[in-house]
Design a protein around this nucleic acid. Structure first.
Lengths: 336, 336
DNA sequence: ATGAAAGCGCTAACAA
DNA sequence: TTGTTAGCGCTTTCAT
C-alpha cells in the first residue's frame, strides 16, 4: 500500500481509454481551444468513469501556479485568529485558491519552520499573523519571489498590512465611558510593549485630556491578558477608589466581573466594567458586557484580497485600517 | 512578477555553484550514502548561501510521498473542532508531516469539493471530522489509494475512527445529578437524529431506570444546540415542574442560565443546571457550570497517530473510544 | 565517490 | 483539430 498513487489513474490512462494523446486530454480538461466539442465531452465522461483526479503536483511543477496560499497564525484555538483564518479561507476559495494553514503555537521557532515549509511547497503568497517575525524574515520570503501580506499586525513597511485601529476603537469606548459617568477609570492592560496596549493607552490619555481629567499612572496595571489575571488584579485596583474598569480584552473583563460577583460588588451599580473584543460569551453573561467589536473575518478577507492583487501585479505596499465598532450593552450602566 | 519561482534557485544552480552534478546535490541533501563528507558540507553551505529551498512539488512528483495529510472539519471557528485540529497538527508535525486543513463551513457541497482538492494534491491520508460524508464518499477516497480515518464521528465500518464516548460521559453526569438530588430532570437536546443526542439520551434512560424514576418524554426538547435556543426553550421547560436541566452542550446551558438570571430564578437553589463540553467560559460564570470535559486535542492526536500507522502498513480498521471526564463545579448545588 | 540518463504526470510550444 | 516533442525540478538506477 505504501507508495502513494499506487493505483492513481493518470492523464495517459484517460488518453488511452479515449484513443487520443495526453495533450488532447489536457486541452479538454483545461477548457482550452483546439479540441472538438464531441471529443471534449467524451474525455470528460471518461474521467468520471475512470475516477480520474488531475495531479496538481505535476501541474504545479510545470505551470508554476500552485494556487496555494500560506497562512501563518499564532494559535488555531484562539477564536480571534480562527476567525481571521475563516475570512482568509473563504475569500481565497472563492477565487480558486486554497490555503495551507500553519499554526505556530505561539512559538517563534515553529514559525520559522513553517515559513520554510511554505517556501518548499511553492505557495504563491503568504499571509502572516505574527508577532515575532522580523524584517529579515520578510525579506527572505520576498527574495524567493513570494508575496507577503501582514494581517492584524504591521510587520514591516515593505509589505502591505491590514489591521484593526486600536486607537480609534479605544477612543470611542473611553468617550462612552465618560458619557456614562465614569470619573476614575482603572485600567487592566496587557504587556507594556504590546502595540495593542500602547495604542489603547494613547486613546485613554487623549480622552482624559479632552475631559480635563488628570491622568493617574497608579490606576494602570500591566499583566498577561488572561481571565485569571482579570480576577486577581481587580482586588488591587478596587482599593484605589476607582469607579470603573477598562479591561484590555473581554476575557480579562470577565475575570474582573467574576471577582466583583464573588465579593458582592454589583455591576454596574457599584462598579462599571468595559472590555474589548466582543467575545460571543460577552453578550451572554448576567450583565451583558459593553465592549468593542472587531471585524475579524473581514480582516482576513481583506488581507487575502490584497495578497491576490499583489500576486497578480506587484504594487506598492498599502495599509488598510479597519475601524472597530463600539458595542453598547449594560455593564457601564446604560439604560436598556 | 507573476510566474512563481521566477527567481527560485534550483538544485541545478547549487550543483553548478559547487562544480558537481545535481545527483550529488540530491544525495548530499537527503543524507544518502555516496557523497564524501567534505562535498556534503560544501553543498550544504552553498544551499545556505544561495538561499536554496528544495522544491517539494518536484520531490513529491517522483517519490510519491507528499508528506501531506488532509484534515476536513466542519468549522474552524468552533473551539471544539479547532482543538481537534490542533491535536492533529501537533502530532503530524512531530512526525514530519504537514496538514492541509479544509474548513467546510458545515456545507456538504464544500466538503465534497475539499475531498476532490485533497485527492488532487495527492495527500497521503485524510482525517475526516464530518457529519455529512457518506459511505460512498469514503469508498471513493480509499479507491484512490488514500487512507482515511474518522475523528469524532463513526463514518463507516470500513475505516478506523476515534470518538468520545457520549454514553459513558452522560452516564456519569446523570448519576451525579441524581446524587445531587435531582428528581425531575428536563432535557434540552440537539437534533433528534444526531448520534450525540441519541447516545446521551440512552444514558439518561438508563439512569432513570437504575433509580426507578419514570421516564417522561414531555420533559425533553429537541432543538438546534445554540445559546439562543437554550434561553428560549427554558421557559417552556420550567412550566413543567422540573427541578433541573441537562443541556446538550455548555452554550445551551449558558442560555438556560441566562434565562433564569433574567427572571429571578436562582441557580442552583431554585433550579439546577448541567452542561456538556466544558467550554473555557463555563468555569468563569457566576455559578460555575458542572459539565463534562472531552479530550479534544488528544482525540485529534489519536486520529493522526492511527492514520499514520495505516499509511505505513494497511491494517484492519479499529475504533478508539475516549472516555470523557465529569467536571464537578457548582451549578448542581455541590458544596464547595 | 561521482556522473549520465531516464522519468514522475503534466502542459505548452510547434508540427502536421 | 490532433499529435509530437520537450521539459518543469527533482530522485534514482546504472555506469564509470
Amino acid at each position: 500500500m505504501r507508495p502513494l498513487g499506487h493505483n492513481m489513474v493518470s492523464i495517459v490512462d484517460v488518453a488511452r481509454h479515449c484513443g487520443v494523446t495526453p495533450s488532447s486530454v489536457s486541452r479538454a480538461l483545461n477548457n482550452k481551444a483546439g479540441v472538438s466539442e464531441s471529443l471534449r465531452q467524451k474525455i470528460k465522461q471518461a474521467c468520471i468513469e475512470l475516477n480520474y483526479a488531475p495531479n496538481e503536483v505535476a501541474r504545479t511543477l510545470i505551470t508554476k501556479e500552485s494556487k496555494l496560499i500560506g497562512l501563518i497564525i499564532p494559535d488555531l484555538v484562539s477564536t480571534y485568529y480562527a476567525s481571521i483564518a475563516k475570512g482568509v479561507n473563504e475569500y481565497l476559495r472563492s477565487q480558486g485558491y486554497n490555503v495551507l494553514l500553519c499554526d505556530c503555537n505561539r512559538d517563534e521557532h515553529i514559525e520559522k519552520d513553517n515559513i520554510q515549509f511554505l517556501k518548499r511547497q511553492r505557495v504563491e503568497g503568504i499571509i502572516m499573523v505574527s508577532v515575532t517575525a522580523s524584517e529579515s524574515d520578510i525579506k527572505a520570503i520576498k527574495d524567493s519571489g513570494i508575496q507577503v501580506v501582514a494581517a492584524d499586525v504591521e510587520l514591516s513597511d515593505s509589505i502591505s498590512s491590514v489591521i484593526n485601529d486600536n486607537y480609534t476603537g479605544a477612543l470611542q469606548l473611553f468617550r462612552h465611558m465618560i458619557h456614562q459617568g465614569c470619573k476614575n477609570i482603572g485600567l487592566i492592560l496587557g504587556n507594556k510593549r504590546s502595540k495593542t496596549t500602547i495604542d489603547r493607552l494613547r486613546a485613554f490619555k487623549q480622552v482624559m485630556e479632552e475631559n480635563a481629567i488628570e491622568f493617574n499612572e497608579h490606576n494602570i496595571i500591566y499583566t498577561d491578558a488572561t481571565f485569571e489575571n482579570g480576577y486577581k488584579k481587580t482586588k488591587g485596583l478596587l482599593g484605589k477608589g476607582i469607579d470603573s474598569i477598562f479591561a484590555i480584552n473581554d476575557s480579562v473583563a470577565l475575570g474582573a466581573i467574576k471577582y466583583c460577583q464573588d465579593h458582592g460588588i454589583k455591576i454596574p451599580d457599584n462598579i462599571k466594567v468595559a472590555g474589548y473584543d466582543d467575545l460571543e460569551i460577552s453578550s451572554m453573561i448576567s450583565v451583558p458586557l459593553t465592549t468593542v467589536h472587531q471585524r475579524k473575518i473581514f480582516l482576513g478577507k481583506k488581507a487575502a484580497e490584497l495578497l491576490l492583487q499583489e500576486i497578480e501585479n506587484a504594487q506598492d505596499p498599502i495599509k488598510i485600517v479597519l475601524t472597530p465598532k463600539l458595542v453598547v450593552r449594560a455593564s457601564l450602566g446604560e439604560k436598556q
